[in-house]
């Protein structure tokens, strides 16, 4: 298992490096898309700023508090997007037959497809999310304790892992429906968007859904409530703030199983 993971990481590094070299063949285009990426994600936050230009709080949360949620969600998602954000090419690769070429190489297929179309410009979202997060950390009036300091990097890591699991699960789904790549956007982009707003904004059943069915709430809502000293959504127990790493491990394991099932189905049907 560990051997396979190491092989996978090595193959990922090699292929990602090739994609970076490819992008660098068109330097101007790279610079433009990088700038564009920063701008897109910037406008994302601009919407929230525009809202707060007309109101003082949203669902009872102030701007710095919402910015805290935004920063956590955008940074965690940004990492996942940087690492696995191009997995939606899988459907195209299956349709045009080039997926088969990945299967005759001596490297795990998940690593190869994960590194496919690796794009450094996606760093834009991480940078932009981190800037907002940095501002929120100093202006949200957090009553810092060592535990809270520890929890921030912990939830960024766990959040990125949860989003990575979503990308892998979405790719696995494409083995079944090659044209339906957009469905995964609902969960990945949709997920990061909804987590930018306080849980108090959403209906109770909706919050239950994104806590227990699709555990997005553990990316930021639950641990952020602890850091900000706010009540937990759904009155979860106090230790729930420390559960994100566990949730992330479970998500990744499930996504891994889904991927294996999808790949097995592909290799028995060839479509």
């Amino acid at each position: 298992m560990g051997e396979r993971a190491r092989e996978g990481l090595r193959a990922y590094r090699l292929i990602a490096a090739m994609w970076m070299r490819s992008t660098m063949m068109y330097r101007t285009s790279f610079a433009l898309t990088m700038a564009g990426n920063l701008l897109v994600t910037g406008l994302d936050f601009a919407t929230i700023l525009l809202m707060f230009s007309r109101v003082d709080s949203l669902g009872g949360w102030s701007l710095p508090e919402v910015a805290f949620l935004y920063g956590l969600s955008a940074t965690a998602f940004g990492f996942a997007d940087l690492v696995l954000g191009s997995m939606d090419v899988l459907g195209t690769r299956i349709r045009d037959g080039s997926f088969d070429m990945l299967l005759v190489r001596p490297a795990p297929v998940l690593a190869q497809i994960g590194a496919d179309h690796f794009a450094l410009r996606r760093l834009g979202r991480v940078v932009q999310g981190a800037v907002v997060l940095g501002w929120a950390l100093v202006s949200a009036g957090i009553d810092w304790t060592p535990a809270k300091v520890l929890l921030v990097p912990l939830m960024l890591g766990a959040g990125a892992a949860i989003f990575c699991a979503l990308f892998v699960a979405g790719a696995a789904f494409q083995f079944l429906a090659q044209d339906a790549a957009e469905v995964q956007n609902s969960f990945t982009y949709g997920g990061t968007t909804l987590l930018q707003y306080p849980p108090t904004v959403f209906g109770k059943d909706f919050v239950r859904g994104v806590t227990f069915l699709l555990p997005l709430a553990f990316v930021n809502w639950v641990p952020a409530a602890y850091v900000l000293g706010r009540p937990y959504p759904l009155r979860l127990p106090a230790w729930a703030a420390w559960s994100p790493p566990l949730v992330a491990v479970v998500c990744c394991a499930l996504a891994g199983l889904a991927w294996r099932a999808g790949l097995r189905a592909y290799r028995s049907t060839g479509s």
């Binding site: 490819s22 068109y26 037959g97 070429m101 005759v104 001596p106």
Partner: peptide, 27 residues
């Protein structure tokens, strides 16, 4: 044993290149 086999076989699919489109051949 797909990956172990991969070291023993070479595959060329006529209409599908495995070469990197934008990079020099040597890469």
């Amino acid at each position: 044993e797909r990956t172990r086999l991969a070291h023993r076989i070479g595959v060329v699919f006529g209409q599908r290149t495995t070469l990197w489109w934008d990079l020099p051949l040597i890469d």
